[in-house]
Design a binder for these strands. Structure first.
Length: 419
RNA sequence: GGAGAGAUGGCUGAGCGGUUGAAAGCACCGGUCUUGAAAACCGGCAAAGGGGCAACUCUUUCCUGGGUUCGAAUCCCAGUCUCUCCGCCA
């Protein structure tokens, strides 16, 4: 959530920047609420001081007066917290401000390609989509998932299931052994304040799968990405500067409700309610954010390099970035059947936006209290990597070659073909 | 599911109705000493919010929410979480 004092002091900059995020902001409402709020706080505090003094004097003749003050304080407190809530509600629904070097634009059409890597293979036969390949192999079964669960789920079977596991293991090994991330196997369920901390709540409640655990009023959600649970590991915490940077990696299933509602990518496993993703999270000192974002994006693209999959790196425009991000790179992998690049990773710096919400702080060199920067990125989406491998490594007979680096993870299997 | 114990500053841990924002220790920061470091000694050190250009000042906060009281970390009620023992269980 944005700091109201920052907004007050930099109102022009704030208004200008928030506009680039497709937000229709009425600044007057905010400044009005802020002013009323502060007035109420001052009034309340004055009364509290009076009351305190009476209590210190222990003068019985003033006790009656003190009681009266208490009632007044109660009234003011109630009013003040109502105003505060109203203000917070507005503020907590405002997205992060974009970094200066983010292209300004309405939507994905303003995204900019940074670079393109790898060469697109020339097929001398008609390429099949991953779902055609998978169903022919009898290793992807969408109908079965519909029977047991519903639409937008899939069964992956046999060697393709092993390939999915191999992809995940390969990526985790790369990030832990080579890139300095610490592996975590986290809970897949997050509390509502964790969801608030990373920015899924309150605005994107409808995209989440909510669970009913018990009779308590506490709300729990299936994680839409491991970012939520990994980043919130430092929630409500005072870190030491010596703890930073923290780099974490986890391979988890992710659950998203929104996937079904768009009516796009209805075929195949591009957009599912449940998918595996290897997630990278970094907690760093705020001035290191952009540097860390480059590093993280390199860690993600390294996976594509090693898998020899053609891809491009793009920088998202202000209109296409996620709620909590200040700067985002997407990696898009080439999908032959669609004849275009599709998102396979998204790496974002969130600056201090999330640490503010999570109340994560650290003590700097001379004990000053600061918010750390948080970053998250997919390294990579496992399901989509599986798709990319199937399509880019397919043969004319419908078999699929195993990328060299994955063979050790596949019992040295060379090729997946019909049994 | 049954029976107990607990929740206090970055950490450990005292306090159990009135100068307690909170003893003590550790950690951290500054200094003295030292060729340098360690040790020792001296000093500093909670956060959030309001007002002020600032020095500074005020308010709140001892798990959360209610209650008692002129006054609550301290008493009462409800809730949450943690720990120990028993039962059950992957």
């Amino acid at each position: 959530m944005h700091n109201i004092r920052f907004i007050r002091k930099n109102s022009e900059l704030f208004i200008k920047k928030i506009k680039t995020r497709n937000v229709d902001l009425d600044y007057k409402i905010i400044s009005n609420l802020d002013e009323i709020n502060r007035k109420l706080i001052t009034d309340k505090e004055n009364l509290e001081r009076d009351k305190k003094e009476i209590s210190k004097k222990k003068d019985k003749t003033l006790f009656e007066k003190s009681k009266e003050i208490s009632i007044e304080i109660e009234n003011l407190t109630k009013k003040q917290s109502e105003i505060q809530n109203e203000l917070n509600k507005i503020l907590s629904n405002l997205p992060n401000l974009p970094h200066e070097d983010v292209p300004i634009g309405k939507d994905e059409n303003s995204n900019k390609v940074v670079n393109t890597v790898g060469s697109i293979r020339n097929f001398d036969f008609k390429v099949k989509s991953h779902f055609e390949l998978g169903e022919k192999l009898n290793m992807l079964d969408f109908d079965l998932a519909t029977k047991t669960t519903g639409s937008r789920f899939v069964f992956i079977k046999n060697q393709l299931a092993m390939l999915e596991r191999a992809i995940s293991n390969f990526m985790i090994d790369l990030h832990t052994k080579h890139n300095g991330y610490v592996e975590v196997s986290p809970p897949l369920i997050a509390s509502s304040d964790s969801m608030y901390g990373t920015g899924q709540l309150p605005k994107f409640e409808n995209d989440q799968f909510e669970l009913k655990l018990d009779d308590s009023n506490e709300r729990k959600f299936l994680i839409p990405t491991a970012e939520v649970i990994l980043t919130n590991m430092v929630k409500n915490q005072m870190l030491s500067i010596n703890d930073l940077p923290i780099r974490l990696v986890a391979s988890t299933p992710c659950f998203r409700k929104e996937a079904g509602s768009y009516g796009k990518d209805t075929k195949g496993m591009i957009r599912q309610h449940q998918f595996h993703k290897v997630e990278l999270v970094s907690i760093v000192t705020p001035e290191k954010c952009l540097e860390e974002l480059e590093r993280m994006t390199n860690c993600a693209s390294m996976v594509l390099d090693k898998l020899k999959l053609p891809y491009r790196k793009i920088i998202l425009s202000t209109g296409d970035m996620g709620f909590s991000a200040e700067k985002t790179y997407d990696l898009e992998v080439w999908l032959p059947s669609e004849n275009k690049y599709r998102e396979i990773s998204s790496c974002s710096s969130c600056g201090t936006f999330q640490s503010n919400r999570m109340k994560t702080r650290y003590k700097g060199k001379s004990n000053e209290i600061l918010n750390p920067g948080t970053l998250n990125g997919s390294g990579l989406a496992v399901g989509r990597t599986l798709i990319a491998i199937m399509e880019n490594y397919q043969n004319s007979d419908g078999s699929i070659e195993i990328p060299e680096v994955l063979k050790p993870y596949m019992n040295n299997l060379d090729k997946i073909s019909v049994n």
